[in-house]
């Protein structure tokens, strides 16, 4: 009997914890943005704190916390990777637009991507659109992702697979870190 009670209490406390931590995170994030925008947190605290509370509450209602958490330790590496591919993507466009022959070989590519619904998949869709030569179009009914590629002869599926691995690492969805 005592064991069951303890289990129930543990479940309740976990439930409470699951709600409080995202709420606190959203509040602090909203407060950080307020601080950045206002330049003066102390002077505007009477507007800032209620606003941050309201924003945190609205964001929890509109976008409930997902099951997948970013691994903060893996974030700098991912940001560095993202900046590198952004630069390559921009230079790729620069080179193609300035070239008189306009080297393009556009086409669609349907790709199976092993990422769960929610944050990881959305991050993939946004990032792939900013990577060289690929643009996310939609999700097909068979859960593959349709990409538009500027140059289909350039093996765009390799880039997409590399990004898939990076996001799996970022969310701790892979056991090995290789």
């Amino acid at each position: 009997m005592g064991n069951v009670h303890q289990e129930i209490r543990q479940m309740e406390s976990r439930h409470w914890h699951d709600k409080a931590v995202p709420a606190l995170q959203r509040f602090l994030l909203a407060l950080l943005v307020w601080w950045i925008l206002s330049n003066d947190l102390i002077g505007s605290v009477w507007i800032g704190i209620p606003t941050a509370l309201l924003v945190g509450w609205v964001s929890l209602k509109l976008a409930p916390p997902g099951r997948y958490r970013l691994r903060l330790l893996a974030l700098p590496h991912f940001c560095l990777y993202f900046i590198t591919v952004s630069v390559i993507a921009g230079l790729d466009i620069l080179q193609r637009t300035l070239s008189p022959s306009l080297p393009l070989q556009p086409g669609m590519l349907d790709l199976q991507i092993d990422l769960p619904e929610g944050q990881p998949l959305w991050l993939f869709m946004i990032t792939i659109s900013l990577m060289p030569g690929t643009l996310s179009v939609n999700r097909q009914s068979d859960s593959s992702i349709r990409l538009h590629c500027l140059d289909t002869s350039n093996n765009p599926q390799d880039d997409a697979k590399a990004l898939e691995h990076r996001i799996q690492t970022l969310y701790g969805l892979r056991t090995s870190n290789s």
Binding site: I83, S86, V87, A89, G90, L91, D92, I93, L94, T97, L102, L104, P106, S129, L130, P132, G133, L135, V137, H148, L150
Partner: peptide, 21 residues
């Protein structure tokens, strides 16, 4: 210069992202 809608989106999103960066 790019021939169709899809390719034009490529040019805008990627070049403007790097330009603003």
């Amino acid at each position: 210069r790019f021939p169709d809608t899809y390719c034009r989106i490529h040019a805008l999103t990627k070049a403007d992202n790097l330009g603003l960066g």
